[in-house]
Amino acid sequence: MSALLEIKNLHVSVGETEILKGLNLSISAGEVHAIMGPNGSGKSTLSYVLAGRDGYEITQGDILLNGVSLAEMNPEDRAIAGLFLAFQYPLEIPGVTNMTFLKTSVNAVRRGRGEDEMDAASFLRFVRDKAKALRLDDDMLKRPLNVGFSGGEKKRNEILQMSVLEPTMAILDETDSGLDIDALKTVAEGVSAMRDAQRGMLVITHYQRLLDYIKPDIVHILAGGQIVKTGSPELALELEKSGYADYIGEVVA
């Protein structure tokens, strides 16, 4: 069976600088992979290039989602194809309520897939239930998107968007950073609840804590723009003890 997400020999440059240098990664439906790696190793770059952000140029290699190349697709079509990115730094949109944003987003995606838009009443119920599960106050749905949200609220809100959009491939970029202990647990539960045989997840994190809850199938170490080690969840525990020193040397220049 072919993988849900297949990244082959991916080279990515921002301007003149090459940041990803031949990255390979394959995630099958139903799997949760974690990526760990030192600051500046290219984790967010990977997430951005998967989502199709401008300025991140693929100079070599390819990205396939369900066997279809994403390289030439614009960001919204990737979203419609089922890709979701929980941002490390979610953006603020003044004057647009969280609820309006969610609705616009869900309807845009549904329209893109040739599905009917959801009617207002059932959408409201649907979102309220999801928000409740993430312990997000109803009040947060009425506030302008991410404006004045605390760091932790922003991250929880990203997970709310994910659970409402129900993507087939979700990438979470440091969703655990900035969360207090209880929020971390709530978010981890939210993520775990979305584990599904049809869905793939790529969780970028610096900390074992999140992985204690989420329990990934596979852990990768990204250093110097490449995956330098792939292993079982124990790999994360090992890192917690001895850091990245052993791996940084392994990067081919």
Binding site: P75, E76, A79
Partner: peptide, 10 residues
């Protein structure tokens, strides 16, 4: 980009 990632065109 954030909006586009959520399915909206530019």
């Amino acid at each position: 980009f954030y909006c586009q990632q959520r399915g909206l065109d530019a």
